[in-house]
Amino acid sequence: ALAGVLAAREQAQAAALDALRRREWVLAGSVQDVYAEAIAARLIVHDLDATAGRPLRQFRTLPPYPFPAQGDDPSVGAAAADTAEPRGDNH
């Protein structure tokens, strides 16, 4: 009887873990979309600044993405995106 209870518990935990992994992938996809939009918005702002002849705005660096594996040093992994591009004079 105990073996049956333990097997059922293991199956329930495996199903819960699988659901959590699927949820993690959905959330990671959402973070990736937001990250891409943030970079795109920065590039648009830089283009507008360059067109207006203003200095490029400085943004806070984005956190590393993809996220470092757990237990890794957070400073290791993907570098923060530098969205500033050198611009030539368009005058």
Score class of each variant (00 low, 15 high):
E85M: 12
A81H: 06
A1S: 15
I39W: 03
S75M: 04
V31C: 05
R23W: 13
G53R: 04
E10T: 14
Y65V: 01
A50M: 00
D18K: 12
A14H: 05
D73T: 00
P64V: 07
L27G: 05
V34G: 01
A50F: 00
F67L: 13
R60D: 15
F67A: 12
W25L: 10
P86G: 02
A12L: 10
V45N: 08
A15P: 02
G71Q: 09
P74N: 00
F67K: 14
R22F: 01
D82E: 09
A41D: 06
G53P: 06
R54M: 10
P64I: 08
G71I: 05
A50S: 02
R54V: 05
A38Q: 13
A52E: 00
R21I: 09
A52P: 00
A14L: 08
A1P: 13
Q32N: 11
L62K: 10
Q58A: 15
A41E: 07
A81P: 00
A81T: 14
R87E: 01
E85S: 12
A41R: 08
E24Q: 06
A28T: 12
A28M: 12
P63V: 09
R60S: 15
T83A: 11
A7N: 11
A52Y: 00
R9W: 03
A78W: 03
R87D: 02
N90I: 09
G88D: 12
E37Q: 07
L62V: 06
A50I: 01
G71P: 09
A1R: 15
L27R: 11
F67H: 13
L17Q: 13
A7P: 03
V26G: 03
A7R: 10
V76P: 00
Q70Y: 12
Q11A: 15
Q70A: 11
A19N: 07
F59P: 08
L17K: 14
A41W: 05
G53N: 05
V76S: 05
S30K: 13
A81V: 15
E24T: 08
R54Q: 12
P66M: 11
W25C: 01
A16W: 01
A28S: 10
D73P: 02
L27I: 12
L17S: 13
R42F: 03
G29R: 05
D33H: 12
A12P: 05
A15W: 03
A7F: 03
R42C: 06
P63K: 09
Y35F: 14
A36N: 13
R22D: 06
G4N: 14
L48H: 09
A78M: 05
R87S: 01
A7T: 10
V5T: 13
R60G: 13
L20K: 11
A14T: 12
V26N: 04
H91C: 10
G29F: 03
L56E: 04
R54D: 02
A3Q: 14
D72P: 01
